[in-house]
Amino acid sequence: MKIIVQRSGGVAGMKRTWTVRPEPPEDTDRWQPLIEACPWDDVAGPGEATGQPDRFMYSIRADQRRAVLPERELTGPWRDLVECARAAAEEAGPAEIG
């Protein structure tokens, strides 16, 4: 299992990437409900979503699934997934930039 969160945009325009590779079975069991809770089929695909000036854009991947969300749509289960992924990735080491 692999979860990748990429944040781009913001007035600074700096891209940051947080990657989590949960180890089966305990870790993947913990991540699966967070991933399943997100409405993957109800969001725009890459290149379709457009953000607002200087807000962040999020590209979220969990194995084969992918979603692109403007900052203001990062709510509910999406926000939970992104915050958990960032926290886990940062625990493992500094955020990748670029």
């Binding site: 607002q52 807000r55 900052e71 915050e83 926290a87 940062e90 955020a95």
Partner: peptide, 22 residues
């Protein structure tokens, strides 16, 4: 103290929710 940057990045994540409709 490069790990400090991970703290910085984490700080930014607190400020994600702004649902006002632009």
């Amino acid at each position: 103290q490069e790990p400090g940057f991970s703290g910085a990045a984490e700080a930014a994540q607190k400020a994600l929710l702004h649902v006002k409709s632009f």
